[in-house]
Design a protein around this nucleic acid. Structure first.
Length: 566
RNA sequence: CGGGGUAUAGCGCAGCCUGGUAGCGCAACUGCUUUGGGAGCAGUGGGUCGGGAGUUCGAAUCUCUCUACCCCGACCA
């Protein structure tokens, strides 16, 4: 491709409403342009990247034995009424009517459609297991679309649905697709983690999210340095400390802490580490308020707390008035001594001794507090978020925390849909049996943004080679004046093109600075500069986008040099 | 949906308070010069100032209203 024949519209300035780097760079390179809230055009440049990801996804899905099909984007309401999701899916569903006034929605996902297809097509256990997939545009009327294509309303998704007779069989396919997903992100060239996820409302036994690691990620991921273990921080169990509680030495003492309410305030005031402090949080319980007790430097995990049977769901903190009734003081001075409610302490708190806590009296704290001697608790539980340095729950290595962007999610659905839609097959005994299902999604358009979040520098995008819009960029210096440069550039262009290398040559009549800037903004992995200066010595210049180091290469070796890098 | 903001040329913005029917930078186009890191000079094109209504002799500017977009929260590939 030559730039003059391509639609290349880069811009120097970043649009004001592009928040995150991937959105900014996608707009500046001209990969996408916005049509409306959460609606984007994919330009020829952007589409090249999207297609490359799709191709890898298709190849790996096919390899895993999945079968591609296309389903309508517009779906009749009747299917959604069968599963109850016409109402339950809520405002995310874009509902529309046809000319006859019949209700439809623009598909946000295709469980209903595929289950309907399966119940009509699959009649015998002999046809199972089977997995269908689609790579299609979906529409979710998100409450707040943002970050460009990262959370768009209309987006490209690969969705796969598997059907089985047994849970064992489902688990096998699930594992196979788990592997396929690893292959996909591996091939795309991203640093990623499969992460244990909450299967939540959809139910079923197993669920993994696939996260691309990037500082701007919206989710915190806890992963082990010593094994493959990874989980959403919210889900990551924190093991009980192996240390024993030390003997109580200090005397219980009441101290004045005027206006010191937060852990940080009190720790500073007393010149001690927050680790010596204990914080007490009062929350609504099922029938009586519950106190949750954590070490000063730890963070409450609301999901873990809400899962405890004494704690009310949804998780709710008591308000100031309620706190006053129970603790007889403001939130800043609650303590465990003589606190009249059910007390659940974190595993880390159990082994603390001589600690500091609120005195249940405004502007006062207690030091030298010890369990049994000074205060009692009812229960020990895992209450806090995992932190870097915690031991991994599987006993191997330590936890590190990274931020991730969720680009894939796989579920063992079970029979939720086949049940409500009555999708049955005859089993080996000739009896009707509901099929069991799995579903497996990848946000293809989101992967593009995630790849940029993970691979950029101050000059622009640094594409992983497998998904770069072009593999090589040729930059002829002053081609309009130098016939020699022009000829060498054109020859190199056609040599590489013949070898199947995707080349873009900047044949615009522009100054070199603009060329370099654009090539770097676009993030083409391999850059070849052709100028009279090097040609005088029979050479051209090569620069890798990642390394940004210029290397002189003999003209007759450049093609081999490039192909050796691919 | 709740809270906050913005809307003026393709992009980024000024003008609005204190009405007199638009301007800057970048981009685009033409010419000359320049030519290894986002060039210089000269010139050109492009806006019913988000829509509608009102006040006024006169509205980008004041008032009302609608719409769109963005940010913060819950949700998700």
């Amino acid at each position: 491709m030559k730039t003059t024949k391509f639609h290349l519209q880069t811009r120097k300035e970043t649009p004001a409403d592009a928040e995150i780097i991937s959105h900014q760079l996608m707009i500046r390179t001209g990969m996408v342009s916005q049509l409306g809230s959460g609606l984007y055009n994919w330009t020829p440049l952007g589409l090249k990247v999207l297609r490359k990801i799709e191709k890898i996804v298709r190849e790996e899905m096919d390899k895993a034995g999945c079968l591609e099909m296309i389903m309508p984007t517009i779906q009749p309401s009747s299917l959604w009424e069968e599963t109850g999701r016409w109402d339950k899916y809520g405002d995310l569903l874009l509902k529309i009517k046809d000319r006859a006034g019949r209700d439809f929605c623009f598909g946000p996902t295709h469980e209903e459609v595929i289950t309907d297809f399966a119940r009509k097509e699959i009649k015998s256990y002999k046809q199972l297991p089977i997995t269908f997939y689609q790579v299609q545009t979906k529409f979710r009327d998100e409450i707040r679309p943002r970050f460009g294509v990262m959370r768009a309303r209309e987006f490209l998704m690969k969705d796969a649905y598997s059907f089985h007779l047994s849970t064992d069989c489902l688990k096998k396919t699930y594992a196979k697709i788990h592997q396929a997903y690893c292959n996909i992100f591996e091939r795309i060239g991203l640093t990623y983690r499969p992460v244990e996820a909450d299967s939540g409302e959809i139910g079923g036994t197993g669920s993994h999210e696939f996260h691309v690691l990037a500082d701007s990620g919206e989710d915190a991921i806890a992963y082990s340095t010593g094994s493959d273990y990874a989980a959403n921080v919210e889900k990551c169990e924190v093991l009980a400390p192996t240390k024993q509680r030390k003997e109580a030495i200090a005397e219980l003492t009441v101290i004045d802490t005027p206006n010191k309410k937060s852990i940080a305030d009190v720790a500073n005031f007393l010149s001690v580490s927050p680790k010596k402090l204990v914080k007490t949080l009062l929350v609504e319980g099922v029938d009586f308020p519950v106190a949750l007790v954590l070490r000063g430097d730890h963070e409450l995990n609301e999901i873990k707390a809400a899962n405890l049977k004494q704690v009310a769901s949804p998780f709710t903190m008591l308000d100031d008035e309620q706190i006053k009734m129970i603790a007889k003081c403001d939130a800043g001075s609650i303590g465990v001594k003589d606190l009249d409610c059910y007390i659940i302490i974190d595993r880390a708190v159990e082994i603390m001794s001589d600690f500091i806590t609120g005195a249940n009296q405004d502007d006062k704290h207690l030091t030298g507090v010890n369990w049994d001697r000074d205060a009692k608790f009812n229960q020990v539980a895992d209450l806090r978020n995992a932190q870097a340095g915690d031991p991994s729950p599987d006993g191997k290595g330590k936890i590190k925390i990274a931020r991730g962007i969720e680009v894939g999610h796989i579920f063992q659905l079970g029979d939720t849909y086949t049940d409500s839609m009555n999708a049955v097959v005859l089993n080996e005994q000739g009896k009707s049996q509901h099929m069991t299902m799995g579903c497996y999604g990848i946000g293809v358009s989101r992967v593009v943004a995630a790849a940029i979040e993970q691979n950029h520098d101050d000059k622009g995008i640094v594409w992983p080679q497998q998904i770069a819009p072009f593999t090589v960029v040729i930059l002829p210096m002053n081609m309009a004046k130098s016939e020699r440069v022009k000829q060498v550039a054109n020859n190199l262009y056609s040599d590489l093109t013949k070898l199947g290398v995707e080349v873009i040559m900047d044949d615009r009549k522009i100054r070199p600075g603009v060329m370099f800037a654009d090539a770097e903004l676009l993030g083409i992995p391999h850059q070849i500069t052709i100028g009279d200066r090097a040609l005088d010595e029979g050479e051209v210049e090569y620069k890798s986008r990642k390394e940004m180091q210029n290397v002189r290469i003999k003209l007759d070796e450049i093609v081999n040099h490039i192909t050796s890098l691919l």
